[in-house]
């Protein structure tokens, strides 16, 4: 599926995906997260999709999977204690106190990305895609270009401040 085919055939499914998220979470914020995550996954898998594949049932299935996945992560976070949660959120090699002060920027980057909200992390990593413009990010996530820019800026500043503080 090409970029234009994605914009033509996948983007109009947004209201349907939003309804899937609303039926599950009953909250607008989480429903938006579901839509963005679903659209992102479909974008990243676009090479394996064809327009004739029946995109609607595939998109619905992906959206339901995203809902259940988010629900499971939320339950896992609730059941873990604070210390266990910190340990689970970081790679094993980062648990020693000294590594937080490591000058390894990549290690700190992983930790910093883990501290972002799901939508901020999504935008940060999506921007790393080759040939990814702000307008295309807006099309993929269903956000306004200005919102993409401001949220991306917020994510980058958070990551930047965290890494700089711990280097």
């Amino acid at each position: 599926m090409t970029q234009s085919e994605y914009i033509t055939h996948v983007e109009p499914l947004r209201p349907l995906l939003l309804r899937v998220g609303r039926d599950f979470f009953r909250r607008e914020e989480e429903a938006e997260d579901v839509v963005q995550e679903t659209l992102l996954r479909l974008w990243l898998c676009r090479d394996r999709l064809a327009v004739d594949d029946g995109l609607r049932p595939i998109a619905l299935r992906v959206a339901r999977n995203v809902c259940v996945s988010m629900w499971r992560k939320a339950r896992l976070r609730e059941t873990l204690t604070l210390e266990e949660g910190h340990a689970a959120g970081r790679p094993d090699s980062e648990q020693a106190d000294g590594r937080l002060l490591s000058d390894d920027g990549q290690l700190l980057l992983d930790i910093a990305l883990g501290r972002l909200s799901p939508s901020e992390r999504r935008l940060f990593l999506l921007r790393q895609e080759p040939d990814m413009s702000l307008d295309l990010m807006a099309s993929i996530t269903g956000m306004q270009p200005r919102s993409v820019s401001s949220k991306l800026s917020a994510a980058r500043r958070k990551v930047y401040d965290f890494i700089k503080q711990h280097l």
Partner: peptide, 24 residues
């Protein structure tokens, strides 16, 4: 150094199970 690390971040990877798993 912070910016350099950020610029080198790996993009998201597409996972095959995103299209095949079914939690309906």
């Amino acid at each position: 150094r912070a910016v350099q690390a950020m610029l080198q971040a790996e993009p998201m990877q597409a996972l095959p199970q995103w299209l095949t798993e079914d939690d309906s």
